[in-house]
């Protein structure tokens, strides 16, 4: 259940940013979550519901953008979409691959009034 820690961190980042802009409420937040980030989407969505209570995000619309995992093979240089962290190159069966995207867990933007 590290998703709850992450949700609390997300709320902190959003509130910190909103305060810098002298806002009192946050009406929306956009989160970017990679498929290989180690976050279970349902768990994070549930955790966010709890984490926003009594915060500036209480009634905010939360948008989750899930980013597909991408990897590049260091042996044959071809790009592919791995199923998960256990990335095997489908072209040359190499395990020597680098995940190039899909590990994000980012607060992309917030909306204030």
């Amino acid at each position: 259940m590290h998703e709850f820690s992450i949700a609390v961190n997300i709320v902190e980042i959003a509130e910190e940013t909103a305060k810098l802009h002298h806002a009192e409420k946050i009406s929306g937040i956009v989160l970017e979550i990679g498929e290989a980030s180690g976050i279970v989407p349902e768990a994070l969505e549930m955790a966010m519901q709890s984490a926003v209570k009594n915060t500036m995000l209480e009634n905010a619309k939360i948008t989750f953008i899930y980013i597909p995992a991408k990897a590049i093979c260091n042996d044959c240089n071809k790009e592919f979409n791995p199923d998960n962290l256990i990335a095997v190159c489908p072209h040359c069966s190499s395990f020597n691959v680098t995940i190039t995207s899909g590990k994000e867990m980012r607060v992309k933007s917030i909306e204030i009034d």
């Binding site: 009406s27 607060v107 933007s109 204030i112």
Partner: peptide, 24 residues
């Protein structure tokens, strides 16, 4: 909430602030 990307915001008066910060 949900996996919505259609940006049909109810708050057209709202100001979007780019944060781009890692959750951790």
């Amino acid at each position: 909430h949900g996996n919505e990307e259609n940006h049909s915001h109810h708050h057209h008066s709202g100001k979007i602030i780019e944060v781009e910060k890692d959750a951790l």
